[in-house]
Amino acid sequence: MLAYLFYIVAAITVTTAVYLIFEKNPVFGALYLIQTMVSLAVLYILLEAQFVAAVQIIVYAGAIMVLFLFVIMLLNLDIGEETKNALPYQRIPAILMGIALFTIICIVIRSKLLQGKQDQYTTAFVQGVGNTKLIGNLLFTEYLLPFEITSILLFVAAIGAIMLAKRKL
């Protein structure tokens, strides 16, 4: 049952992602992107990562997409015209490299060598404690330092936004 759900959602994710690339109207493009993000959230839930799924919806489908749509509306972007290909010589190498990367990824996935950390965080254990609680615990114990430094990172980003965008300093 879950396997079927996975295939359906995965198909939706890939299809909307492809539509996003080929869509000429930016508003429709943004809508396809929202659909991609939401389908990814469903995939996270299938992987028992409910917290990541919730964050995915809140941050990407919520905040970032609203920002995207705002920018599209404010700039009043028209339906994209056929623009001249600015990088004619990169087209063929890019397609070849893309195929090569796709092949490599397929080989890697087929080789089944991915072996994540399993020891203490089994599905049963995570379900027992609760997803959110476990992440919260880890953030304030094992990963305290990177968690705190992230606040400086956000602070720097805020300074940068004001610094570069404010009309008059």
Binding site: I149, I152, L153, V156, I159, G160, M163, L164
Partner: peptide, 13 residues
């Protein structure tokens, strides 16, 4: 990684 980001974003600005 976090250190690299703090450093890089400051320098972009």
């Amino acid at each position: 990684f976090i250190g690299l980001e703090v450093m890089s974003i400051s320098i972009y600005i």
